[in-house]
Design a protein around this nucleic acid. Sequence first.
DNA 1: CCTATGTGCTCC
DNA 2: ATTCGGA
DNA 3: TCCGAATGAGCACATAGG
Length: 563
Amino acid sequence: MSSSILFSEFARVCSEIEPVSSSLEISARVADFFRGLNDDDLGTAAHFIMGQVFPAWMERELGVGPSFLYESIATAYGMQRRAVEDLLRRTGDIGVTAERMCSQSVQRPLFTEELTLQRTYDNFNLIARIEGKKSQKRKVKLLADLLISAAPLEARYLVRLVAEELRIGVGSGAVRDAVANAFDVPANLVERGYMLVNDFGVVAVTAKNEGEKGLDSLTLIPGRPIRMMLAQLSGGMEKGIGEFSRPVVEWKFDGARVQVHKMGEEVQIFSRRMENITSSLPDIAALIREFVSGDTAILDGEAIAVGPDGRPRPFQDILRRFRRKYDVGQMAEEIPLHLALFDILYSDGSSLLDEPLESRRRFLERTVKEDPEGRIYLASQLATGDLSEVERTYNEALSAGHEGIMIKNLDSPYTPGRRGKNWLKLKPIMETLDLVVGGAEWGEGRRKNLLGSYEIACVEPETGRLLMMGRVGSGIKDDQLSELTDMFREKIISETGIDVGLQPDVVFEVAYEEIQKSVNYDSGYALRFPRLIRVRDDKSAEDADTIERVTELFEGQRTAAQN
DNA sequence: CCTATGTGCTCC
DNA sequence: ATTCGGA
DNA sequence: TCCGAATGAGCACATAGG
């Protein structure tokens, strides 16, 4: 077996791809890179190149976020943490920050052998496994040691890799095409393989050594999570219905997605990111054991927190159940979950992915028994193109406290991991609030040297005080962002790191999905999914929405749905 | 023992 | 999650 | 139309530190 390539080689490839914008050229370059690698390197490079340290199925985490990363850079290059953050503010890129500090550093490498791709991966595994007392310091130290032995360009990509933001324009689409290209196999087979095993490393090595036949033999295995099918926003009720010759409508539940694998008496539950959350959800597992017939099945559905009145509870309550390790039983009583099932991917030995929804639905109906207590049920499905019926379903869903409806194509297969147009979601257009901008943060990457997100606040009319409600950084077009930055530049009253204090006299119209209670902001409320609609040039701070109005809207959310 | 900080995950 | 922008 | 890269709030857990 040939030995591992150097990490500097990987860094060089990244640096060559970074300025390329043509997607064809990107995948061609990745393909060239892949072709020259041995199995081990290919397995690693396939997820590294998309900025992923460990493959998704592997339940391993580095446990290094921005803060430890900055600390490591500071340690490695003998700088202050503050200097790292200041340079980050100016470069807008943590990789470039490390690269510059590396080239100015006088620290000597600790390791004599050169850093290979495999040794990098081994070190990531070491970092991931560190736990217990002083673990944070040990993680920072080990990463710093790696950085000391890296050349500037290596430091750039090592750091970006740890941040899981390679920012070279390579994602799963590019890797899929690169594997197809490098080993002369059809791209759709590569994609299919990736959906099933969640690891481009495995897929690439299979394609390389066993070709099309090998990819073909990859199959769905109960017990191993598969990527979930995603939905796209519908352009409206009529438009959505019009997309399909045979549409069906279901409620869009306000909960959290779960994928349930039943293998005899054994049940495994996976989250959207394919994390195994079985031990947090014993109540769901019990329901599956009791009400799902047949020996093996993979089901897709939504876990919903329900209140005593049977209505869904605020989304925050679901988060208190997911990933819980302690007091699981007690919390299951306090916040009971119901399970709405809407799809089935596997049944007694065969994959149903390629079956049309219509047929999967029949399998689902045959597989799930009715719970007289209604804790586990199938999402009601209405097969109709009749707009008034669809509208009625939509209103029912909202009255029941859910988010809206899903419009699905009865003739479509289950396409894992794809935000295809075979599932459309339809939600109400939310109201907006006019909020005062009281501060901002300097952005990164594409938003370097631009104010990338803005603190928003409502007004307390009696005192004129501003009460913060969170931040908004989405919904802003590029040219608007530079205009905003220019406008706010003159209003900066303080600056620490990436945080900027602003004269509070600009009003943003902000849209949102929901108002949530919050302990993090002094208004006591925060917005779920805030986005900027426009700048209210016609309004000044005193005309912004008040805390009373926010409270009214919050109270209204729960009851307004009744009508 | 309590609280603050950091990370990683949810938002079909 | 939402949204924008390049290909 | 797809895909990559910006950005949001809030929860549990592990760890650090008083």
